[in-house]
Design a protein around this nucleic acid. Structure first.
Lengths: 257, 257
DNA sequence: TTTAATAACTGGTATGACCAGTTGACCATC
DNA sequence: GATGGTCAACTGGTCATACCAGTTATTAAA
């Protein structure tokens, strides 16, 4: 019997959740005016303060635009939202994972990792080298447990990102991690090849010790490649079997003129 | 006579601004408990609703953690915030640009651009090819005006990111763009070499037309490299001339053991 | 010493009033 | 016909005052 802490949501959280889902899943198109705050109070049966707190958060997240006296309208979140929206986009309303979003996350991960490793090698402190060694040792000790390896791998990359001394990478990593953790357990099998490749993590850590930026980058790229392969294959297979939205033309087109 | 819309901030915006600056600039360390909502009302001379709206936004931005009944404390934003915090980090309290943050943005940009171009080449629609052509043509027409070129280049990359059909890249690009626009005019000179290299943009657009992912990626990498060079040199020069916080040891160390 | 009740915090919700900005209809003016 | 003023009916923004709900340190009882 595995019990989890009961989720406790404040009213404004619930309002935020409902409205953001409506917007993100396309039930409220960009440009659509939102009901007035007082109208939302009526519909949602909460006080105006709760509604306002939620609207302020939606505004900050880039989902809506509020104008004093003029009303509130839905924005195109693809142009205005930031990475922390990923975990909301990751799941369909039925709880299944949106594979296009998952693929996006894996692609971005693969592009960033080599440069993170490269910079980490150039800028790491001596103490961080030791931390990386401990990390790799911990992974070697957990070689059997894929889930534990996955967590450790995440921590490994977290540490490497800190070593890179690049605040943009750190913040982007935070956003990616939040969404990645949402699908982590679902991916543990397809990523087993990457997770078990302890030698690759070793190579990265060694290159970082040598301050060998290129070596670290290449090792990271190799690790990402043979790790992402399985996922991309899985996604391609699932996509070809679910051609439900294939309304428009497919590949091998030429310029229409 | 160039007039701009007058800036109008709501109270909760002002509160959010003040508190986030306090946190981001390190005057409130992670773990520090915030004053209670009622205490903040007293200090800031605003009603509790305004304070609560601001706190909810700070919580969503990953800067604080609110616990019902338990109080509110400051988080380590480097571990919990997302990319949209960049534009707040970019400026010191005196208004000058934080060069470490600027360097981070340029590095991340350089790492993402080649993969964005690669994916765009693989997934673009015929219509998007035409849009890219128009974009390059518009840049050729503005060859003299660096500021206009900079704006167009930003739009070029925006379009390319849309072509990549990678939602993570799109969201990350939004975050980077917001911070980039904050330092855009300051960088126009150092980036002139990149902005004037219309042939490179042409090469990328052509590779995208040919669905040549590798070609597009390489062209993008080349463009980024010779564009970022000037900036990194500038940053290195400025850093070496301002060695004020060089309390700890410098390079060429070895493992302490 | 341990445990249970409690008082004094904390944040969360509710209500009703009023201030302030926007919009559109209407109207006088030019 | 175009311009600018007036006004009513929206919209969001601010405020004060309750009270509910959860946490924590204190205190009294076992």
């Amino acid at each position: 019997m595995r019990l989890k802490p009961v989720a406790r949501k404040s009213l404004s959280d619930a309002v935020f959740e409902q409205l953001s889902q409506e917007i993100v899943h396309g039930r409220m198109r960009p440009g659509t005016p939102l009901p007035s705050e007082r109208a939302l109070c009526d519909v949602l049966r909460v006080n105006r303060g709760a509604v306002r707190e939620a609207l302020k958060r939606l505004s900050q997240a880039g989902l809506i635009a509020i104008q004093h006296g003029g009303g509130t309208r839905v924005l195109d979140f693809k142009q205005t939202a930031s990475l922390d929206l990923l975990n909301r986009l990751l799941f369909h309303h039925d709880g299944t994972v949106d594979l296009r979003v998952a693929r996006s996350v894996m692609e971005m991960r693969a592009a960033m990792a080599p440069d993170i490793a490269r910079l980490a090698a150039l800028r790491r402190s001596p103490g961080q080298v030791l931390q990386l060694d401990e990390m790799v040792a911990a992974m070697a000790a957990q070689e059997q447990d894929l889930l534990a390896l996955q967590v450790l791998a995440l921590q490994f990359w977290d540490l490497l990102t800190v070593c890179s001394e690049n605040i943009a990478y750190q913040l982007a990593f935070n956003g990616l991690r939040h969404s990645y953790e949402g699908m982590r357990e679902a991916l543990v099998e397809v990523m087993s090849e990457e997770l078990r490749d302890l030698a690759a993590y070793r190579r990265i850590a060694d290159a970082v010790r040598r301050k060998d930026g290129e070596g670290a980058g290449q090792s990271a790229q190799a690790l990402m490649q043979h790790g992402s392969r399985g996922i991309l294959q899985l996604l391609a297979a699932l996509e070809s079997s679910t051609d439900d939205q294939a309304a428009n033309g497919e590949e091998d087109d030429d310029d229409e003129q």
